[in-house]
């Protein structure tokens, strides 16, 4: 579904992503792992058009995305949930969801039902301001808002950041349900265990290059591989 070939991305003089090639098959969840500063967020920002790649190509459903601005990328069906959960804190939960469905207002009602079914907590809080939600609820809202846009591919940047272990497990159960419904997921994560439980295929980024790529089972089974590529970082679950 998504093919990235020899991608180079950087800020000013510094290249952060240096020749990354990866592939996200439709209907699967794929993880990008790696320590802080390995380039996960930069990669995602390039995928959604916030950063312009130096070279290389990004193909989505066989069509190149190069040069598109974020709104156009959303239109194509790629929706990005940033690590900072960029909600609109002054707006209510419902208004945030309305904005999520900005690209496709006609589907609003049906999407809303789906999202409320997935996150019943948001239905209870629909007229509350987003800024007053707890961290976990905000993360749910950020993902729910992304889902309102009917994404074909959901990009999640460290969804577990700042969540208690119990909430992380719950979040990943929801993501698993989404994946089963056919949403393709690309996930950047530091919580290796949680990511491995969801994703079939794993890429490990190190200093802007793909240091490892393979099935999740090979990483899951081998603590040596984990140690080699991911250093000290671990995580819950597994």
């Amino acid at each position: 579904m998504l093919e990235v070939r020899e991608l180079w991305v950087g800020y000013n003089d510094v290249s952060v992503i240096r020749g990354v090639t990866l592939e996200v098959p439709a209907g699967e969840a794929t993880a990008v792992l790696g320590p802080n500063g390995s380039g996960k967020t930069t990669l995602f920002r390039a995928l959604v058009g916030l950063l312009r790649p130096r070279s290389g190509s990004i193909l989505f459903e066989g069509v190149p995305l190069n040069g598109l601005r974020p709104p156009q990328v959303v239109q194509r069906g790629i929706v990005y949930v940033a690590a900072e959960r960029e909600l609109f804190p002054q707006l209510t939960v419902l208004e945030n969801l309305e904005l999520g469905a900005y690209c496709c207002p006609r589907a609003f009602q049906s999407r809303l039902e789906l999202v409320f079914e997935l996150f019943p907590r948001l239905a209870e809080r629909r007229s509350q301001r987003a800024g007053t939600l707890s961290g976990g609820e905000q993360q749910m809202l950020a993902i729910a808002r992304a889902l309102m846009a009917q994404p074909k591919l959901l990009l999640l940047d460290e969804p577990s950041t700042g969540l208690a272990p119990l909430l992380v497990a719950e979040l990943y159960r929801r993501l698993e349900a989404l994946r089963r419904e056919g949403v393709t997921i690309l996930l950047a994560e530091q919580q290796v265990g949680a990511a491995l439980s969801l994703c079939a295929r794993v890429y490990v980024l190190k200093e802007g290059r793909v240091a490892f790529c393979g099935g999740a089972s090979s990483l899951r089974g081998s603590s040596e591989l984990r140690k080699a590529y991911l250093g000290g970082i671990g995580g819950v679950g597994g």
Partner: peptide, 25 residues
């Protein structure tokens, strides 16, 4: 209208608005 909501969103945070599919420009 929904444009009002979009304007509110972009005056809050332009990047977030763009990521929601709003053509800020």
């Amino acid at each position: 209208s929904r444009h009002g909501l979009a304007l509110h969103a972009l005056s809050d945070d332009e990047v977030s608005a763009e990521l929601s599919g709003i053509d800020v420009a």
